[in-house]
Write a protein that binds this DNA or RNA. Structure first.
Lengths: 179, 179
DNA sequence: TCCTTAAGGCAATTCGATTTGCCTTAAGGC
DNA sequence: GCCTTAAGGCAAATCGAATTGCCTTAAGGA
């Protein structure tokens, strides 16, 4: 039986927080004993629960990203996408967000299948587009949204180019006028 | 005095090749002694020359990327960009290219200034655009080229989405019709 | 409340990466 | 061809991460 409550949850959260803090502090390759020390937890617990530093990083990144920048329901596709893009933009301006995105990319070995989280995000997007289509709005494909909006935002972060304020909304505008 | 020729060059090439081979073989986190063994070189040499695994990875990645996908001079902006994009596309379909791009992103700590290689690539692009402008062609900005063409290609690789054949040329077309 | 057992802590051990001092090799200027 | 010295190799010593067996704690169902 699995025990999500109480202590387990406390340890998990403490470790996730330690990961994010250390990454944000520039300790990109802090090893497990160091992370454990920051979390006030025994290294063994981390080894047993996550097995490897990579698994831990992905878990921490996904856990945090999951709660960030949901797609709102504003009644118009333009509003939905702009709201979402602004959320992404905001989280990418935050140092923690940047570092986790980088860690996520870094630990995704090639040719494994896409991470579950990413697929879930794509599905969210598809639902939003379907709803807009049902309202009779002209809609882009998921791929187009990713190409026009997410890719430029992520590239800015990953290659250390500036994330200018309002860039999210502007990218959405560019997408919708290209339809 | 620095000695680029002969043995030094041989060691450097052997180590670079070992890095690429190991990465491509899925040994993402092969440590320095392992890399050294593959290169037929003493670990000490690597420690002394590159200092850390990260420096070595970035060096290997940049060295390889530098020789890949130059911007051709075809006489038209469309041709130049399409040629370049196809080169990028090709190198991204190659497993070595994928792995190195990922390694490059992974080891770029945030908030250091952009890597010299990336700036150089931006300058190349700017020159190509300037030449086209001088011929009287309508030209996008460097940022637009990166947003429309490079970002979507790189996102596909980094997030393990398929790089469909001809995608590079199609992205260029999308950019030029948006002008 | 009591009991079962999943999960965390501790400590000893193993294992491999990193460092360092010294020696050997071979670029590259003369 | 000779000489200087940058760069590579070797081996010993260190240092810390990872592993493992055993014990303790505390979820969570009865």
């Amino acid at each position: 039986m699995t025990r999500p409550g109480g202590r387990s949850a406390r340890v998990r959260d403490a470790v996730h927080e330690a990961v994010v803090d250390l990454l944000a502090a520039g300790q990109i390759d802090a090893a497990i004993p160091k992370i454990a020390a920051h979390a006030g937890v025994n290294p063994t617990s981390i080894y047993r629960r996550w097995g490897s530093r990579d698994h831990l990083l992905v878990d921490a990144a996904v856990t945090r990203l999951r709660t960030t920048s949901p797609i709102p329901d504003t009644g118009s596709l333009r509003g939905d996408l702009a709201g979402w893009a602004e959320g992404v933009e905001r989280s990418m301006r935050d140092r923690h967000g940047q570092v986790l995105l980088r860690a996520l990319v870094a630990t995704m070995a090639p040719d494994e299948e896409p991470i579950e989280y990413l697929k879930a995000r794509g599905d969210d997007l598809q639902r939003t587009l379907d709803a807009a289509a049902a309202r009779g709005e002209p809609v882009p494909s998921v791929d187009e949204v990713l190409d026009f909006v997410l890719a430029p935002l992520y590239l800015r972060v990953l290659f250390r180019r500036p994330v200018e304020p309002g860039i999210g909304a502007r990218l959405v505008e560019r997408l919708l006028t290209a339809l």
